[in-house]
Structures are given as structure tokens and as C-alpha cells.
């Protein structure tokens, strides 16, 4: 069971309090009418599912009810960071990653 640091509450809490909400940083097109069916389909359904770092959206459902982002490794399940909506991740696949022991990184 993951241990997740809620950036709003400032605490490490167990996964049971949270619900995952898919890939992060999927912005709604500003002008949907300008999108072709294909582009709209990509926005609706096409997602990155990498083996490695993934930025994903989480909801602190049984906590502060706020959404936030996490950078998580999809094979080791290590969470490298969590950050608020609107912020940018410090860890990206391209920039490489530092490792932190599971469950104790805040």
C-alpha cells in the first residue's frame, strides 16, 4: 500500500485515503471546437503508460478533498515527489531521477 505525501495537508498518509485520477497535465483544449475528431479523441482517451516515471493526478478523497500531482515510478512504485496543481515536476524521465527509499521520502 502506497504511502503518499499530500502537499496540501503536509503529511504522509496511506493510499486508502486517496484515489488516483489518471495522467497529470492533460489540459483541456482551450478551443474544443477547433479540434478535429481525431484530436478530441486523443484528448479524451490516449494516455501515456510508460515503464518508468509517470506524472499522475491524485485526489485526497478522504482527506482535504484536493487534487494534486505525483511523480511515481510505475515499476518500483516509488513516489519521487508530490506537487500542487499548477506546479511543475522536479523529476522527469528526461532529466533522470534520484532515488529515495520507499515510504520515507516526503
Amino acid at each position: 500500500m502506497l504511502n503518499i505525501f499530500c502537499p496540501h495537508c503536509g503529511e504522509l498518509r496511506s493510499e486508502e485515503e486517496f484515489s488516483p485520477a489518471g495522467q497529470a497535465h492533460i489540459a483541456r483544449p482551450l478551443n474544443p471546437e477547433a479540434c478535429s475528431d481525431e484530436e478530441w479523441g486523443e484528448y479524451l482517451f490516449f494516455r501515456d503508460s510508460p515503464r518508468g516515471l509517470r506524472h499522475e493526478l491524485w485526489l485526497h478523497a478522504s482527506g482535504c478533498r484536493k487534487y494534486f500531482n505525483a511523480t511515481r515510478h510505475t515499476v518500483s512504485y516509488e513516489i519521487l515527489e508530490t506537487y500542487k496543481i499548477g506546479e511543475q515536476p522536479a523529476f522527469t524521465e528526461a532529466a533522470g531521477k534520484k532515488s529515495a527509499a520507499q515510504g520515507v521520502s516526503a
Partner: peptide, 18 residues
């Protein structure tokens, strides 16, 4: 269980999550 990463190697994305 490995479709998206392999599709990425072939140069396309899919409506999949693993």
C-alpha cells in the same frame, strides 16, 4: 502488459493504461 512501451518504440500512442 507491455503494449504502450512497445508501441512507443514503434512511434505511436494508444488509448491504454496498464
Amino acid at each position: 502488459g507491455n503494449t504502450s512501451p512497445l508501441a512507443a518504440k514503434a512511434g505511436f500512442r494508444l488509448p491504454l493504461e496498464s
